[in-house]
Amino acid sequence: MSERGGLQPKHQRLALVVAAVVALVAAAIIATWALRSQASYFYVPSEIVKDHPAPGRAVRLGGMVEKGSILTRPDGVTIDFVVGDGTARVPVRYSGIVPDLFVEGSGVVAEGRMQANGTFIADKLLAKHDENYVPRELKEMTAAQKKLVVEETTAK
């Protein structure tokens, strides 16, 4: 079976495949690295505040709806709220129907444009939920059960 000197054909093929896969992975890593900012689906508030997208340019803004920030105007369909990412905050205005998962303290992606005055005018709101899955009946549990569920479901 063993050939003195020189590689066996199957080892040659293996080396070739390994080299090809390494090159491919490197190319993919470089490509995704280059795409890092372009391939992102939205900008977070700190990027918006830092880079100031031109007023009127269509962008997506994503972040957390700040607790206590949702205000409904007298017309009943226009809402104002603040999207934050922990470092920066952007005020947003939106008129229209709101998805059911759009709530304070949860994620949101808003499509629209910045105004010169720093307010983001949204044409479309998408709700973004996090990776935590918690039963709704948590409220009806005993304190001990609740503590157990919270313990096993806090990821960070």
Binding site: G76, V77, G96, I97, V98, P99, D100
Partner: peptide, 8 residues
Amino acid sequence: MRETLDPW
């Protein structure tokens, strides 16, 4: 205004 979709 909420959408209040029926999920079922």
